[in-house]
Design a protein around this nucleic acid. Sequence first.
DNA 1: ATTGACTACCAAAACGTTTTGGATTATTAT
DNA 2: ATAATAATCCAAAACGTTTTGGTAGTCAAT
Lengths: 347, 347
Amino acid sequence: MYPKRFGKMTMAVTIRDVAKHLNLSITTVSRALDGYEDVAPETRERVRAAARELGYVPSSAARNLRRQRANIIGYVIPASGTRFTDPFFSEFISGLGDQAVSQDFDLLISTATPDTPAEQQVYSRWISSRLVDGVILSRMRLEDWRANHLLDKKFPFAVHGRTGGQADYPFIEIDSRSGLTQLVKHLASLGHRRIAYIGAPAKFTLQRDRFAGYCDGLIAENIPFDASLVAEGDLTRAGGFRAAQALFDAPHPPTAIIGANDLTADGVIRAAHKRGIVVGRELAVAGYDGTEESEHTQPPLTTLRQPVYETARNLVIMLISLIKGDPLLQSQIILQPELVIRESTGR
Amino acid sequence: MYPKRFGKMTMAVTIRDVAKHLNLSITTVSRALDGYEDVAPETRERVRAAARELGYVPSSAARNLRRQRANIIGYVIPASGTRFTDPFFSEFISGLGDQAVSQDFDLLISTATPDTPAEQQVYSRWISSRLVDGVILSRMRLEDWRANHLLDKKFPFAVHGRTGGQADYPFIEIDSRSGLTQLVKHLASLGHRRIAYIGAPAKFTLQRDRFAGYCDGLIAENIPFDASLVAEGDLTRAGGFRAAQALFDAPHPPTAIIGANDLTADGVIRAAHKRGIVVGRELAVAGYDGTEESEHTQPPLTTLRQPVYETARNLVIMLISLIKGDPLLQSQIILQPELVIRESTGR
DNA sequence: ATTGACTACCAAAACGTTTTGGATTATTAT
DNA sequence: ATAATAATCCAAAACGTTTTGGTAGTCAAT
């Protein structure tokens, strides 16, 4: 039935083969390839040539065992069901992978729904089997068992955002609070007074910050807070869609809606479209994230752009320093998001 | 500066610790935990309890070295620059990861632009260091060095789609050729005679198949082939956008446009929108893939849906059988895509 | 001639498992 | 009572590296 091309794999060539081939000790071969100074230049060249010729590459398992390090970092994508829909993660993962590779690390990926046993299992398996040397955390919760657990185990990690309390770990945070304030001010400057906010579940740090920023903006503009203009989404398009419908049905619907992320905002746009509400003209919509997709909504979405790719790269740099025990230049970075004004908030 | 919470990690607990704690040999501990029959039920329980109590988890490096297997599969995302924009990959990766975990494997991810030295490097590093036990391939080229190379090394792999010639490896293919024919027929049944096709670069197998299906459809409907209605995209939104603009500018513009994937089709929709062309009324647009995003274009996109998530899972099942040397039930699977008719092709 | 410093190499230990091939004791069949 | 069988357990080897703590040789300075 199935062709027998996948027979036994040809036994891999080991360092011993190289050594034998050159009449050298495996020590010398190892040190030659690792670039130690105590091997003659001529020998080093012979070793390099032989290694290439024989196709020798060190066994990662053996190396990991001896070095007590895997040169792998892990990242668990917060998924909801059979997919992770947020383009945020595509970009984030690209950044993690690219930087990791450039520092001779690899990236291990898993998906898990936040705060489930499955999530705990992934992390604890990775950590206690020492399969990964460190992990990247994102979409933090106010009380996040992950941060506590990792601190407790003294296991290296770096986070995007942060938890509720004091942050005794390296992180890169985008100051979404002041970003949202800026956004509210911008909407107010366009004449909006009934500005709604569709947030995320309260347990997420980003919700605390963005909601606070929203409130700050209202205060700054002397707009009274109206609880009926605040809805809870779930950071998905569907969540935004549902929440928007409810807002439209309210006695005093908003003239502007801010989504906690671009996906939510896109859901709002779709809900508006379904009702025949013209976004950008009858209703202003804005999001948060500024991934590429936000350019391609109809109309293009006003949003707060955060540098996802670069942040991911920097997190990996921080994490690998941590793993290697190198000193961190900066361990707690706070960046400002950039307000990108597009047609969805009108002219 | 940086708090000293990441000091030395507490030395991990090894199998030796467990053995000493119970006055047993490490052999027995190992075999008890692995569920061998030659250990007394009572002893097995004691071992299990002690392992849990002490928090023992086998070192993956040591286990991999001894077993000569990593229990890791690899997947290289074909990225173009700083991100992979296609939601296809989000879903694909979720499928890979979920199935892998359920079989006690992990998923290693990297990104690389197709046919670059970087791509070669990733694969050869993974393979020759035996960091992964097998790889999943996707978006195949007609002449694909990857398949040849892996066959040559007798390294396990499974592919989504296939290469140009004979396929001496396990794969799951979606019959996109007949899918496209079906789509063309549907458009013809709506009265369209000028049906354009925006393809992918010729080197991709999917382009050969989908283009052939397009031609089949024209023939079946007695529509003469018109080279001016065929454009080359690059499977991105931007590519679809550009190609559509060119088609609009042609002397005899099409009344329907098929994109080689949903992303391309979405680019077409955007280009149409920019020109004030009403999609679904003045122009029919259709895509291929049927990822969730296709429901959320404006208007929703007619497309050929392939079961991305399930395919990914099945590929992993096949790959792991291969790795373990188990017989494959099915090794070459061909599925039919499902035509999903939505508003973008009008009523 | 002796010492010291330097260069180029290497044997052996260690990393933490799994697996092989028994060894020991208890049980059953003769 | 003895032999055969079954039930448990274990010592030691092996997986392929890196690292430690050297050794032997050369050269220069005393």
